[in-house]
Amino acid sequence: MSDAQFWEMNPTATEILNEVKARKIQEINAAYTAEAQPLIKEYPLVEQQSWTAQNTEARAYLAWHADQQGAAPGTPVLDNILMGRNGETGTETLQQLCLAVIENAEMFTQFQQLTGKRQRLVKAVRAAEAVEEIELISW
Score class of each variant (00 low, 15 high):
Ser2Asp: 12
Gly84Thr: 15
Leu62Ala: 06
Gln113Ser: 09
Ala30Ile: 02
Phe6Asn: 12
Met9Arg: 10
Ala34Arg: 13
Gln113Val: 11
Val77Cys: 07
Glu92His: 00
Glu19Trp: 11
Gln49Glu: 07
Tyr61Gly: 01
Gln113Lys: 08
Lys21Asn: 09
Thr12Lys: 01
Lys41Pro: 03
Leu82Ile: 10
Val122Ile: 15
Val20Ile: 14
Ser2Trp: 05
Ala30Gly: 04
Ala58Lys: 01
Ala31His: 12
Val20Trp: 10
Ala128Trp: 01
Leu97His: 04
Ala72Pro: 09
Trp51Tyr: 10
Glu42Thr: 12
Asp3Ile: 12
Arg118Met: 08
Ala124Gly: 10
Thr115Leu: 10
Gln95Met: 05
Thr91Glu: 13
Met9Ser: 13
Glu106Asn: 15
Glu15Trp: 02
Met83Leu: 14
Ala124Trp: 12
Thr33Trp: 04
Thr89Phe: 14
Ala30Met: 06
Arg126Trp: 00
Asn10Ile: 08
Ala105Tyr: 02
Leu45Ala: 05
Phe6Gly: 12
Glu8Arg: 11
Val122Leu: 03
Lys24Trp: 01
Glu135His: 03
Leu62Phe: 03
Arg23Glu: 06
Thr93Gln: 09
Ala128Gly: 00
Arg59Met: 14
Thr14Cys: 03
Lys41His: 13
Gly87Asp: 05
Gln68Lys: 15
Ala66Tyr: 06
Gln112Ala: 11
Ala58Thr: 08
Ala53Gln: 14
Ser2Ile: 08
Lys117Asn: 09
Ser2Thr: 15
Glu15Phe: 04
Cys98Gln: 10
Val122Asp: 01
Gln119Pro: 05
Ile102Gly: 08
Pro44Cys: 10
Leu78Gly: 07
Glu92Lys: 03
Asn55Asp: 13
Gly70Leu: 04
Leu78Trp: 05
Lys41Phe: 14
Arg126Phe: 01
Tyr61Asn: 00
Ile81Asn: 01
Gly116Cys: 05
Arg23Gln: 11
Gln96Ser: 10
Ala36Trp: 07
Asp67Tyr: 06
Asp3Arg: 11
Ala30Trp: 00
Ala4Glu: 12
Asn55Leu: 08
Gly70His: 02
Arg118Leu: 04
Thr75Gly: 05
Trp51Pro: 00
Val125Trp: 07
Gln26Ala: 13
Gly116Trp: 13
Leu94Val: 07
Arg23Cys: 06
Asp3Thr: 13
Pro11Cys: 02
Glu8Asn: 13
Trp64Asn: 02
Asn86Cys: 06
Pro73Ser: 11
Pro76Ile: 12
Lys41Val: 14
Leu45Gly: 01
Asn86Gln: 07
Glu92Phe: 00
Ile81Arg: 03
Pro11Ala: 04
Val125Thr: 00
Pro38Arg: 13
Glu35Trp: 00
Glu15Ile: 03
Leu82His: 09
Phe111Asp: 11
Ala100Asn: 15
Gln112Tyr: 01
Leu97Val: 03
Thr91Leu: 14
Val131Trp: 08
Ser50Trp: 07
Leu62Trp: 02
Arg85Lys: 10
Glu106Ile: 02
Gly84Arg: 15
Leu39Val: 07
Lys117Gln: 12
Gln119Glu: 15
Leu97Arg: 10
Ser2Tyr: 05
Ala71Met: 06
Leu99Cys: 02
Phe111Met: 14
Ala100Tyr: 09
Gln49Leu: 09
Glu135Trp: 03
Gln26Ser: 10
Leu45Cys: 02
Glu129Leu: 14
Glu8Ser: 11
